[in-house]
Write a protein that binds this DNA or RNA. Structure first.
Lengths: 329, 329
DNA sequence: ATACGGTGTGTAATCGGTTTCATATAATTT
DNA sequence: AAATTATATGAAACCGATTACACACCGTAT
């Protein structure tokens, strides 16, 4: 493995000149540049990133913390972030936290030690005080789905509340007259907001009662169970809004197993917009702009890393209704 | 951020001693150890990983290349690998290659430059010559789902052929008398093997004809289309074996849309064993031991990194039938 | 003719660790 | 008592880059 010294020797210049050539800063004459280029080609020289990092430059690596890579939402997010990272020449370290605060802390420590240039955190559980270590190292952070204001921390969210309202509105438009809701963990801000949207949209209707809300956990199984419970309480419900697509899928399954036809008898809508194309009927959903979220997260992180000043610290993205078979007449 | 020098000064010993203490090699007296420990605690010192790596130690980072993180199989694999990596104190760099050979090459270059200690590659497209760069740097590689013998390259696969046979056998046992097959890309070894298993198991039966095999691409949509085509050719088929679960899910959807009852009219079985619990009926499958595959991949990689000599270069794992509703009477 | 700013280059310090080697002392052997 | 051996430590080289600084050269404005 040739080093910069080998290149400098063979090119008959100093390492400083080679370094300047590599980084395109400082002056390098045309002739020197050409010779260096040839030698690099000949030796198939590649600068050692580790040494580069140590010498004060950045690691060109970012950390990505997600709560659950098995939830299809996060691979989609990861993919968009990775794509964007690649464009900037960055590599992504994947950290699956399992919604476990201790694991989260451990990962943050690791990422600090590995000197990543920035971190994108998607977490339900994280709190401002967990980020003090990062702030001490002034490692930029972009937070997804979890807002708390701070200068060096950018937050990205979607209009969860409006999404909840949108879902109900759509179900009403499709003729539903008794809509149940399967909500996610109440510890999660975005989950609470979606439910708030649901409640707000239901306020004032004559059919609404709190027992139309089932409490669940963002999983297929949880959605299934919640739906079964709701059906027992309200056999005549004709619409369901689940706070994420996985629970909606579970609800769909429960409905089908209990011989409710979807969408004829009951209409179902989820939230997230992950592509669960294998479902029959396909699931209507309030879609998050996942790809754009990832891309923006990376863009903002790069902005923070480069200390650009025009980074919006709190960005809220709109959601859109994707009407599919599960709510169509 | 304190350095080893700060520690050594405050502890009144040399950096060498601190380093020995940190790495638990060489002699360090009890007293020195205690003092150092105190100082480290007091300063909240953490060794700089970059510097460590440069000084010749390893980066404690591995690369994981997967063809498509959106296919649920790979998040599952990634998770098991990450879990195992964590146990060994390693971090994982995620590389999504999109089945794109160029992207693959670029990632390999990047990983070499970042001096990862090893790479786990799950790829359909990779060829031995693509790994020469890695071998030149003697970076250990564990290959999944793609065997080509070599000393420094460990391959992990599953019994794809037997799996194919197992699937047919199961469908026959459940009373099927005309079984179709949706096969995956023929460029993929494991895909070909599954199909070979299918063909072998069908050989000699009076109903088998080559047109019972539909050619597809491992996606839900592909499975859906292939199923539709097969139904047009063979309206009376009563069993389907798809070479992966996503295609099986697509097939299921196609069958349901064309008013075939699963499992009563047609039985469906997939391959992989990803948890598509949202399907109704739930999908029978020939399950790969995904978690174990990931764990073993990591174990083997660590073995290679540590230059242990007892690493099996080619490991083939058994698959198991997971019978669910989609094939039960 | 002198001074100055723009080019171009090399020397050497630096980043924060690991490790070789020399040296010193204490504990065992012979 | 002398010779080993085990224990303990520090000085300094090294890993492979970046970069501050000094210096040299050239053209041009004063």
């Amino acid at each position: 493995m040739p080093t910069i010294k080998d290149v400098s020797k063979l090119a008959g210049v100093s390492v400083a000149t080679v370094s300047r050539y590599l980084n395109k800063n400082g002056y390098v004459s045309k002739e020197a540049a050409e010779t260096i280029a040839e030698v690099i080609e000949k030796l198939n020289y590649r600068p050692n990133n580790i040494a580069r990092s140590l010498a004060g430059m950045k690691t060109a690596t970012i950390g990505l913390m997600v709560p659950d890579i098995l939830n299809p939402f996060f691979p989609e997010l990861a993919r968009s972030i990775e794509d964007a990272a690649n464009e900037y020449g960055y590599t992504v370290m994947l950290c699956n936290t399992d919604n476990d605060s201790a694991k989260e802390q451990k990962y943050i420590d690791t990422l600090i030690q590995k000197q990543v240039d920035g971190i994108i955190i998607s977490s339900y559980t994280i709190k401002p005080e967990h980020l003090t270590g990062l702030q001490k190292q002034s490692i930029p952070v972009v937070l997804m789905d979890n807002v708390f204001s701070s200068d060096s921390i950018v937050s990205l969210t979607v209009e969860n509340r409006q999404g909840g309202e949108l879902a109900v509105q759509h179900l009403l438009e499709q003729g539903c007259s008794k809509i149940a809701h399967i909500c996610g963990p109440l510890s999660i801000t975005s989950s609470r907001d979606r439910t708030a949207g649901f409640e707000h949209a239901c306020r004032g209707t004559d059919w609404f009662t709190p027992s139309l809300i089932g409490y669940s956990d963002f999983t297929v199984k949880g959605g299934y169970t919640a739906m079964m419970d709701l059906l027992a309480l309200h056999p005549n419900l004709d619409g369901v809004f689940a706070s994420n697509d996985l629970m909606a899928a579970g609800a769909l399954k429960a409905l089908q197993e209990t011989d409710h036809k979807v969408p004829q008898d009951v209409k179902v809508i989820g939230f997230d917009g992950i592509g669960l194309e294998m479902l029959n009927p396909e699931l209507s959903t309030i879609a998050q702009p996942i790809y754009k979220l990832g891309k923006t997260a990376m863009d903002s992180l790069i902005g923070l890393i480069r200390k650009e000043s025009d980074i919006m610290t709190d960005q809220v993205f709109p959601v859109t209704l994707h009407a599919k078979q599960s709510t169509m007449n």
